[in-house]
Amino acid sequence: MLEIKNLHARADNKDILRGIDLKVNAGEVHAIMGPNGSGKSTLAQVLAGRDVYKVTAGEITYQGRNLFELSPEERAHQGIFMAFQYPVEIPGVSNVYFLRAALNSIRRARGLAELDAMDFMAVAREKAKAFGLDESLLTRSVNQGFSGGEKKRNEVFQMAVLEPTLAILDETDSGLDIDALKIVADGVNALRSPDRAIILVTHYQRLLNYIIPDYVHILINGKIVKVGKKDLALELEQRGYAWVGEAVASA
């Protein structure tokens, strides 16, 4: 589904990604772990099409297409969804208005009929309930004044409504209490299917107890330095990144 080859990206004259290779097949869940500032969010943002990051080398194919030819909105139309590490507040635009506009643009692009306000509300209410999102948050301005946890739930809620083919979750587990974490994990697991794939960026093994990944990648200093199965996350939790660094250096 997704193949990243030798990806280099920079921002502000700073090289951030320095040769990433990653292959994600349909049906798989990949976890990406790594210390602060290693480039995890940059990778996620590049996948979503954020243009402050300049790709200086490498290629990305998504469903057989060159991803760089697609605008951010076209990527969304093609089923890519990225849950932001820091969801953006949008004053004056209600959550439901925003999400209906999003869903309808995607549906339009796919040649499907748009949902009217009533039909959409029915869907939104049901999903909001499933993700323990207080209904009052639906009519409030997008993320404005939401607590940290509410923002993260809102991201997962959007994901559930938009039903992406490739979901990239950037630290969606950070700032969540244990109950919220389970709800989010349930949401992600519900999305799991043979024709979908999920990339989880996380710092904590905890999330991976609920969402069992097929692969765990360790990203350090703009490179994936180690790939393993789910046990790698456990080992990492016990021994820290220094261990990986040393292991790589001595290898």
């Binding site: 954020r50 951010p72 909105e73 990527r75 969304a76 932001f84 953006v88 925003f98 643009s105």
Partner: peptide
């Protein structure tokens, strides 16, 4: 611009 990107990443054109 960050907000513009947020909306675009959800499928809304620029």
């Amino acid at each position: 611009q960050e907000a513009v990107f947020y909306l675009r990443s959800r499928g809304i054109d620029e």
